[in-house]
Design a protein around this nucleic acid. Structure first.
Length: 857
RNA sequence: GCGAGAGUGGCGAAACUGGUAAACGCACUGGACUUAGAAUCCAGCGGAGCAAUCCUUGGGGGUUCGAGUCCCCCCUUUCGCACCA
């Protein structure tokens, strides 16, 4: 009987002791194609959850398949081990973040090993270790020297009660995710990476990522948010030198601009205001836009100043408006209420003039013209009207012409804007990579010397949970000497965003030796990168994947590597849900992998997770479905073990013609049919058919495992094969099975071995075991099964017969029969007669060979 | 509001370039084995109908000999962005 506990332990020990999945010296393997299979590494929260199991089961299936196919496979794992939870645990349980993290990692490694994933553990990466983060500090210094890392004053999310900044994703409905108090906006000095310098390249190269889901590519494109438009200077009425610079993507509507709207945070806002009482209003509005990002109600007021539309020479009012963002474009806009929804809403509210300057190009839309202008603006392109010399021109044309005109007159400039902002990496936290910078009284901001790295995060800190980061109170860390002048200096106490670590860990995995001397080696990166298959959740579609792309490009420009894009193919797996909701403690619908592994085994859990849905879809958890997976594995094991008992001879060898294929020989498991000549005439017709079906599924598996990764259909095909095998052997009975001739036995063994090799990717422990029982050798030494011609020839096939496109009957005909023959047979069928005969005339016949016949009467 | 998906039995899902819809599994029902149960095995299982037969891929229309699959409109739903000018 199938004892999964024993079997799984046995194979896990063998894999570990024999280093089965360690990458064999890649320098000698350059003649074999490489395959880098990568799963997003976990945060060491304490336990592996079902989402991890799914993610890693997918990756492992691919890695194992590719190995059997003969690839040189790199399949690593690590831990993204810096981050706030460790600090929270430190506060709550009075533990040390380093120790808490370490014990979590140890436990999770144990879990991953119990799940039997085929990682090369020698390449384990733990990002909170100095041997890892010291390289990150080095990259920071190099980026600083190149101007890619810089410091500036900026607005950040601030939780007053936790005394720390929060990342955007840690702000939920304007409240702190941890303590629930209101989040405000604060002005602070922050370190940034200049990701905007790569905005255009990051956008352009998205088109080269053919193996990425469109969804993710679109999300990244939207995030980068490129838009091209025009800046135009609007002179302040009554002044010769003062003007407001606005940004617009619709220069074609400029004749319809009836007011200027300026952000309350605009530096010129104060000077525009004529009535001193309005300065208070400005202050309130400034405060509001700083404190909350919510602008559900458009508000504003007239400054008392007017600007001159350079195209119409008309004076138009200048408003301060809360919906105008300071950090996009120029912080001021020209408002065209007739053709922009927001401008329209604002103009209606404050009674500002609305002038139509675009007419829909098509006259076709007749019935809703009058209504349109009253209730909503017309925001599409069309033909210009009321636009001076530009009237009559189409929008797209006019955009160009008006922009050219503005540039020629020196009042405007064509510009490209990006929504993408520079990446703020400063965190006022302890458990992160220290930023290697000191502040010297004399020299100002001074980077550390590279050979002073690593700057180690001190271990002796006190967590109170109150006030600033513990680093801020750590005198011996802060007090230092200036690397430049040797005078008194203080260290930077901010640490880096943890997305920095995950932006290059996949490069570190390629390093196998001299780890203390290099972050990675360029020749290793050249060999292994790009990652052939990256697998992870969609939640990282923008941040992590965009930051990693940026980092690779930056490292390229720092001459570390020659690589433009890190991830060739990306698979975003769906969530694991139960009772229609994402598993969470608060909903009480969490399924713990540990318990299931103990109860039903790792193979069962893995099989269910891969079988229940294709990887990109959400997976609905089902306890009885898991039991079904368990049943299948049991059945599979029993069928194979029984078969091996029956067909073995007294010496425990298989009946196989030619002594070169036996348990004792070195290539015992060889499926290479050239070693044995099948006597086709002797083969049982049912066995022939089994082999024929097998061939089709070997082929199907190969295409499926080559990028589509619908493991569920591969598994169901394997189940069909096992069922067919069982039907055959069951019907025959043990005695007759034992009396089958050698060709039959050989082919049946080949059949089972092939199914084992297909399923090995999904349920490796039990497949390794069955393979050993059947062949006495290791499955990892085996090759992917070849298709065998066992002499099966289809004589007849079923042909669907339709009359006027409706399914009416199925007839049997010889394979490759011509239309005439099939039609004759079909017309003999009583069912068809009934439908076709009384209509007397056959107008047309459509015949698809071996498949379908459609009679049109 | 904008953008991108999804909608097939009681459930998870199959169906490669349009060609026998529902493979595989779960649940369920009946049977065998058993003192009984569990496990296992066999059979059935989209809907209506005694049956012949008819209907069925969110709804409506279209293209086609033929549509789950292609085109148009609508409904529902999930996700992402959300005043980016």
């Amino acid at each position: 009987m199938y004892n999964f506990q024993e079997i799984e332990k046995k194979w896990q020990n063998i894999w570990e002791n024999d280093k089965v999945f360690f990458v064999k010296n890649e320098k000698d393997s350059l003649n074999v194609p490489k395959f880098y299979c990568l799963e997003m590494f976990p945060y060491p929260s304490g336990r592996i959850h079902m989402g991890h199991v799914r993610n890693y089961a997918i990756g492992d299936a691919i890695a194992r398949f590719k190995r059997i196919k003969g690839y040189n496979v790199l399949h690593p794992i690590g831990f993204d081990s810096f981050g706030l939870p460790a600090e929270n645990a430190a506060i709550k349980h009075k533990t040390n973040p380093a120790e808490w993290t370490k014990s979590n990692i140890e436990y999770m490694i144990k879990q991953l090993k119990e799940l039997g994933f085929s990682y090369d553990w020698s390449r384990l990466v733990i990002t909170s270790e100095p041997e890892y983060y010291k390289w990150e500090q080095l990259f920071f210094l190099r980026m600083y020297k190149k101007g890619l890392a810089y410091k500036k004053n900026s607005l950040v999310n601030w939780c007053g009660s936790c005394s720390t900044t929060l990342a955007n994703e840690q702000v939920e409905d304007g409240k702190c995710w941890r303590c629930g108090s209101d989040v405000t906006v604060k002005n602070m000095d922050q370190w940034f990476f200049k990701i905007t310098a790569y905005a255009e390249e990051l956008l352009k190269d998205i088109d080269t990522l053919e193996g990425w889901p469109d969804k993710v590519k679109i999300m990244q494109k939207n995030w980068i948010g490129k838009s091209s438009g025009l800046t135009v200077n609007f002179k302040i009425a009554g002044s010769d030198e003062n003007f407001i610079e606005i940004f617009t993507t619709r220069p074609d509507t400029i004749f319809g601009a009836t007011y200027i709207a300026v952000s309350p945070l605009h530096p010129a806002a104060k000077n525009l205001i004529k009535n001193s009482k309005d300065l208070e209003k400005l202050e309130t509005m400034r405060h509001n836009s700083l404190v909350s990002k919510d602008i559900s109600e458009k508000e504003g007021f007239f400054t008392g100043s007017y600007a001159v539309n350079p195209f119409t020479d008309k004076k138009i009012p200048v408003f301060i408006a809360n919906f105008v963002l300071m950090d996009y474009g120029t912080g001021a806009i020209m408002s065209v209420p007739a053709h922009d929804a927001r401008d329209f809403e604002f103009a209606k509210k404050y009674g500002i003039e609305i002038i139509q300057v675009i007419e829909p190009a098509k006259e076709a839309e007749t019935n809703n013209t009058s209504e349109d202008t009253a209730d909503m603006p017309y925001t599409d392109g069309g033909i210009l009207v009321n636009s001076g010399d530009f009237s009559g021109i189409a929008s797209e044309d006019a955009k160009e012409k008006i922009a050219d005109f503005a540039e020629k007159k020196g009042i405007g400039k064509k510009v490209t804007n990006y929504r993408l902002r520079d990446w703020g990496i400063s965190r006022q936290r302890y458990w992160g990579c220290p930023i290697p910078i000191v502040y010297c009284e004399k020299c100002g901001i001074v980077p550390l010397n590279e050979n002073d790295l690593p700057l180690i995060l001190p271990d002796d800190v006190v967590f109170t949970g109150e006030g600033a980061s513990p680093l801020k109170k750590h005198k011996s860390f802060i007090d230092t000497k200036c690397p430049k002048c040797g005078g008194k200096a203080e260290r930077e106490t901010d640490t880096m965003d943890t997305f920095v670590e995950s932006s290059w860990y996949f490069l570190r995995y390629t390093l196998s030796e001299e780890k203390e001397k290099n972050p990675f080696k360029s020749e290793d990166v050249r060999y292994w990168l790009p990652v052939d298959q990256y697998i992870g959740g969609v939640e990282h579609a923008v941040m992590h994947l965009l930051y990693s792309r940026f980092f690779v490009k930056a490292l390229r420009d720092l001459n570390y590597i020659a690589l433009d894009e890190p991830f060739k193919n990306l698979l975003t797996q769906g969530m694991v849900i139960k009772n229609g909701a994402k598993m969470s403690k608060s909903k009480g619908n969490v399924v713990d992998p540990d318990g299931l592994i103990k109860k039903l085994g790792a193979d069962t859990v893995r099989l269910f997770v891969l079988f229940a849905a294709p990887p990109e879809k959400d997976l609905e958890w089902s306890d009885s479905g898991v039991e079904g997976a368990y049943r299948f594995i049991n059945k599979f094991y029993k069928i194979a073990a029984d078969f091996s008992e029956i067909v073995k001879d007294a010496e425990g060898k298989f009946y196989v013609e030619g002594s070169n294929i036996s348990q004792s020989s070195s290539n015992a498991a060889s499926l290479n049919i050239s070693a044995y000549e099948i006597k086709k005439a002797d083969v049982n017709p049912s066995v022939k058919e089994l082999i024929y079906r097998l061939n089709g599924i070997i082929e199907k598996t190969e295409t499926e495992m080559n990028g589509r990764y619908h493991f569920n259909t591969v598994i169901s095909s394997s189940m069909e094969l096992i069922n067919a095998f069982n039907d055959f052997t069951g019907a025959l009975g043990r005695e007759k099975l034992a009396l089958l001739n050698k060709s039959d036995k050989y082919l049946l063994k080949h059949f089972l071995n092939s199914v084992i090799l297909i399923l090995y990717a999904f349920i490796p422990h039990v497949c390794s075991e069955i393979f050993e029982i059947l062949n006495g050798s290791f499955i990892e030494d085996e090759n992917w099964p070849e298709k065998i011609d066992a002499g099966y020839s289809k004589e007849n096939c079923n042909i669907a017969v339709q009359v006027n496109g409706k399914m009416r009957d199925v007839v049997t005909a010889g394979i490759d029969s011509d239309e005439e023959t099939v039609l004759k047979t079909a017309l003999n069928s009583p069912k068809i007669k009934k439908y076709a005969e009384d209509k007397s005339v056959i107008k047309k016949v459509i015949y698809v060979k071996n498949k379908l016949l459609n009679i049109i009467v």
